[in-house]
């Protein structure tokens, strides 16, 4: 029994060591690849990032990123490289420029408008006098009422 416990403990420690080793072995370039590929959209997938995609085109694009990292190209230059080829669509977060300003502003504008409409409706509703039969009655009035 004692031998079995020791064996299990050693196995667990070994598994943990392998896991930690994998983490330590993750090269800084892989982290950069993950960061860059997560900011790019897979051109042939539906709403999937380049990092998450397993499409052949995405794999080749990730290979290009890896090569560019190895050649000392900056993250922004790599993003620009793909943007020049596939346009703004390839960016998971479109840049805030004159073309996409409406895209960024519209949700906030609609939310602002909705809040304004809600406040106005709420205020007008709370200030509208209740009909006579729904108005609050005093205890005396309630006692005298036929119901």
């Amino acid at each position: 029994m004692r031998f079995l416990s020791a064996f299990l403990l050693c196995t667990l420690m070994l598994i943990n060591c392998v896991g930690a080793g994998e983490l330590l072995n993750e090269a800084p370039n892989d982290t950069r690849l993950k960061i860059i590929a997560s900011q790019l959209r897979c051109p042939v997938c539906q709403g999937e990032s380049l990092f998450d995609s397993h499409a052949a085109l995405a794999k080749e694009m990730k290979l290009i990123i890896r090569e560019k990292i190895a050649n000392g190209v900056s993250d922004q230059d790599i993003l620009d490289f793909f943007q020049q080829r596939y346009g703004n669509y390839v960016l998971m977060r479109p840049a805030f420029n004159s073309t996409y300003a409406l895209l960024w502003i519209a949700p906030f504008a609609f939310m602002f408008l909705a809040i304004i409409i809600f406040i106005i409706k709420w205020r007008s509703h709370s200030q509208t006098p209740l009909p006579a039969d729904h108005q609050q009655q005093s205890p005396e009035q309630q006692q005298n009422s036929p119901n």
């Binding site: 051109p43 052949a56 085109l57 080749e60 694009m61 290009i64 080829r85 596939y86 346009g87």
Partner: peptide, 13 residues
């Protein structure tokens, strides 16, 4: 064969 020229031209499909 690897589609690198295609990527250079922004080929989707």
């Amino acid at each position: 064969p690897r589609g690198r020229t295609g990527i250079d031209y922004g080929v989707y499909g």
